[in-house]
Nucleic acid binder design. Structure first.
Lengths: 118, 118
DNA sequence: CGGTATCCGGCTCGATACTG
DNA sequence: CAGTATCGAGCCGGATACCG
């Protein structure tokens, strides 16, 4: 999470927000569409409920994701990116492209597109 | 470190390379100039020798930094970025800009410039 | 100077069980 | 369904001591 005043440059500040083991994957999933808790969980094989919940709470506290509670029965919660989250994803795009090109061999992940509203 | 085959997109692959607590700071320092071990250590307040050494070894194994050993007395080692490391730093630049803008308040870290060969 | 070896503490992460 | 509570394991990172 964000710890104002402890950073020496913007990069490590940003790294702190997305440093959780599953956070970039959450951002990645949410970039495509709004998701409910269970969808997110199923989309992230191996994550536990506790860790996913805590990551979501941190991302929410940092203003990256929006949590919409529908007080129905059965209860329903939907997670989506805030405008800040969208901009973060855009800032992450070059890093993702770099990773695909240099680490994944060039085209294994190309089905994913972050939104570029330029 | 890199673990081929375990990633779902380029971003988490890249995150794995730079996920160490001090790695982006090492990249940041090395982006400006070649450094010796001691310089790096002094430039990263709080890092221990062991952790810095292990980070450097991982970054070297991943092809991000180059280690040049001068077999003199006293022994001397110089670390620098490989071309891949330079390209990684460039891919990190937008994230750094995002962090400065949204997390540091806009201009606290502007004394640092990653190379933008545009 | 530039490391490596060893030990250890804390925090992150995960499994399970339980609640509204 | 969408969490919270509790417990425990493992890994990351730090201090110290030692070596070429």
């Amino acid at each position: 999470m964000a710890r104002p005043g402890t950073y020496v440059c913007g990069i490590d500040a940003a790294m702190d927000l997305i440093g959780g083991k599953w956070k970039v994957l959450v951002l990645w999933a949410l970039n495509e569409r709004t998701c409910r808790f269970g969808e997110l969980r199923r989309g992230l094989p191996g994550v536990s409920e506790k860790v996913l919940a805590s990551h979501l709470r941190e991302l929410e506290a940092d203003g990256i994701v929006h949590r919409e509670l529908y007080d129905e029965s059965p209860p329903r919660v939907e997670y989506s990116l805030t405008p800040l989250g969208v901009s973060l994803n855009q800032a992450l795009a070059p890093l993702g492209a770099w990773g695909r090109e240099h680490l994944l061999g060039g085209d294994e992940g190309t089905h994913h597109e972050v939104s570029h509203p330029s």
